[in-house]
Amino acid sequence: YETDHQDYCEVCQQGGEIILCDTCPRAYHLVCLDPELEKAPEGKWSCPHCEKE
């Protein structure tokens, strides 16, 4: 399936195990989030940028 999400972390610009925001195209490593997450959230997730909106 096709997605318009970026394939690198918004914070460190590296690829790998990233989680995708359900609201925007941004993607993040769990450890690059502040506060960092230990595991990917279940269900819908909005990144810090979208949470501020």
Rank of each mutant, 00 (worst) to 15 (best):
T3C: 04
L30E: 12
K52R: 07
Y28K: 02
C47K: 02
H5E: 11
E10F: 14
E53D: 10
E51F: 08
G15D: 06
D34W: 02
C9W: 00
L20W: 03
C9N: 01
I18L: 08
K52F: 05
V11F: 15
Y28N: 06
R26F: 05
P35D: 11
L33K: 01
C24K: 00
P35T: 12
E17T: 07
D7A: 09
Q14R: 10
E36P: 12
A27Y: 06
G15Q: 08
D22C: 03
T23S: 10
E36F: 05
Y28I: 04
D22T: 14
P48E: 10
E38I: 04
E10G: 10
L30I: 01
R26H: 15
E10L: 14
I18K: 13
E17R: 06
T23W: 03
E53G: 12
W45Y: 04
T3M: 15
E36Q: 11
E38M: 11
C32Y: 01
G43E: 11
E42Q: 05
C50K: 03
E36V: 14
P48H: 02
Y8L: 12
E51H: 03
K52V: 04
G43L: 08
C12R: 00
D22F: 02
C50H: 14
E10N: 15
A40M: 11
I18Y: 13
C47H: 05
C32R: 00
P41V: 08
P35G: 14
G16E: 11
E10W: 14
Y8A: 13
S46R: 07
D34P: 07
E38T: 05
K52M: 12
L37C: 08
E36N: 06
H5L: 15
I18A: 14
L37K: 09
H29E: 01
C47Q: 00
I18R: 11
D34C: 06
L20T: 14
I19P: 00
P25L: 06
T23Y: 06
L30W: 09
K52G: 11
E2W: 08
Y1D: 01
C47L: 01
Q14G: 13
H29S: 00
Q6W: 03
K39P: 08
D7K: 04
P35S: 09
P41I: 13
A27C: 08
W45K: 09
I19A: 13
Q13P: 08
D7Q: 14
K52A: 06
C50G: 02
E17K: 13
W45N: 06
P41R: 08
D22R: 09
H29F: 00
T3D: 11
D4K: 12
E17P: 03
E10Y: 14
Q6D: 06
A40Q: 04
E42V: 12
C32A: 00
D4R: 12
E38Q: 10
C9K: 01
C50A: 02
C12N: 04
D22H: 08
L30T: 05
H49L: 06
C32K: 00
C50Q: 03
C9R: 01
S46M: 04
K44C: 09
I19V: 08
A27W: 06
L33I: 05
K39S: 05
V11E: 15
E38P: 14
G16F: 00
G43I: 06
R26T: 03
Q6L: 04
D34V: 07
I18N: 11
C21I: 00
W45A: 08
E10P: 06
R26S: 10
E42A: 07
I19L: 13
P48Y: 10
E51V: 05
E17D: 06
D4C: 13
D34Y: 04
I19G: 06
L30Q: 13
C9D: 02
C21V: 02
P25Q: 08
P41M: 07
E36A: 09
D22L: 09
P41Y: 03
G43Y: 04
P48T: 10
D34I: 04
H29G: 01
E53A: 05
P48I: 11
C21S: 01
T3Y: 14
Y1K: 13
L20Q: 15
V31D: 06
D34S: 12
C47F: 01
G15T: 10
C24G: 00
K44H: 03
H49R: 04
T3V: 11
E53P: 14
P41T: 06
H29T: 00
V11Y: 11
E2S: 15
Q13Y: 06
G16M: 14
W45C: 13
E10S: 07
L37P: 08
H29A: 02
P25H: 01
P35L: 08
D7I: 04
C12S: 00
P41G: 07
L33M: 14
A40G: 06
C21K: 01
C24F: 02
C9E: 02
A40T: 08
H49Q: 11
K44S: 07
P25R: 07
D4L: 12
E42I: 10
T3F: 15
I18P: 05
C32I: 01
V11M: 15
E17Q: 03
P25D: 10
L30C: 08
Y8G: 12
K44E: 11
P48F: 13
K52D: 09
Q13G: 14
E36L: 08
Q14V: 07
T3N: 03
C12D: 02
C12W: 00
H29I: 00
H49M: 05
E10H: 03
C9P: 02
E51C: 07
C12K: 02
V11G: 15
P25C: 04
T23R: 07
L30A: 12
G16T: 15
C50W: 01
Y28V: 12
E36H: 06
W45S: 09
Y28G: 07
L37I: 08
D4M: 15
C12E: 01
Q13D: 06
L33W: 11
Q13E: 08
I18S: 12
L33H: 11
V31H: 11
C9Y: 02
I19D: 10
V11K: 15
C24D: 00
T3P: 04
H29L: 00
K39A: 08
Q13S: 13
E17C: 08
H49P: 10
C50Y: 02
V11H: 15
Y1A: 15
G43S: 12
T23D: 08
E53S: 02
V31G: 12
Y28Q: 01
C32E: 02
Y1L: 05
S46D: 06
E51Q: 10
E2F: 11
V11R: 14
D4P: 09
R26D: 04
Q13I: 05
A40W: 03
C47D: 12
P35H: 02
E38Y: 07
Q14P: 00
G16A: 09
E53K: 06
T23A: 02
A27K: 05
D7F: 01
E10T: 10
L33R: 04
D22V: 05
T3Q: 11
K39H: 11
K39E: 08
C32D: 01
L33Y: 12
G43N: 14
H49V: 03
L33E: 03
D4F: 11
Y8W: 07
W45D: 04
C21P: 00
C24E: 00
L33T: 13
K39W: 05
Y8N: 14
K44N: 05
E38W: 07
V31M: 03
Q13C: 08
V31S: 07
A27R: 08
I19W: 12
C24T: 02
P35E: 10
E42R: 08
V31Y: 03
G15I: 03
S46Y: 04
Y8T: 08
T3S: 12
H29R: 01
E38R: 07
Y1Q: 15
A27H: 08
G15N: 13
A40C: 03
K52N: 03
P25M: 06
